[in-house]
């Protein structure tokens, strides 16, 4: 799944480690989500979106799921 996490992080001058610590996951999890290898759970997606002050749809791209 595509996300705007990397872009938002850079905008906020935030490292993966800092974001990971803030939302309660490891840095590797953030890396995997950013490169699209792992899909975040609803709870984690909510935490990340809330951290950036955005809605889940603004951070995560659900267009791949359309048609299901």
């Amino acid at each position: 799944m595509k996300t705007k996490i990397a872009h938002l992080r850079k905008q906020n001058k935030l490292s993966q480690e800092e974001l990971a610590f803030a939302v309660g996951v490891t840095r590797q999890t953030i890396t995997s989500i950013e490169v699209g290898k792992y899909t975040a759970s609803l709870v984690l997606a909510y935490k990340i979106a809330k951290y950036f002050g955005k809605s889940i749809e603004e951070v995560f791209d659900f267009s791949d799921l359309e048609g299901f």
């Binding site: 990971a20 610590f21 309660g24 996951v25 490891t26 590797q28 999890t29 792992y38 759970s41 709870v43």
Partner: peptide, 15 residues
């Protein structure tokens, strides 16, 4: 303690 908590409850790690 928080780092340990994160390492133990990390959802990707559990998956």
């Amino acid at each position: 303690l928080k780092k340990l908590y994160i390492a133990e409850t990390d959802e990707r790690g559990l998956f």
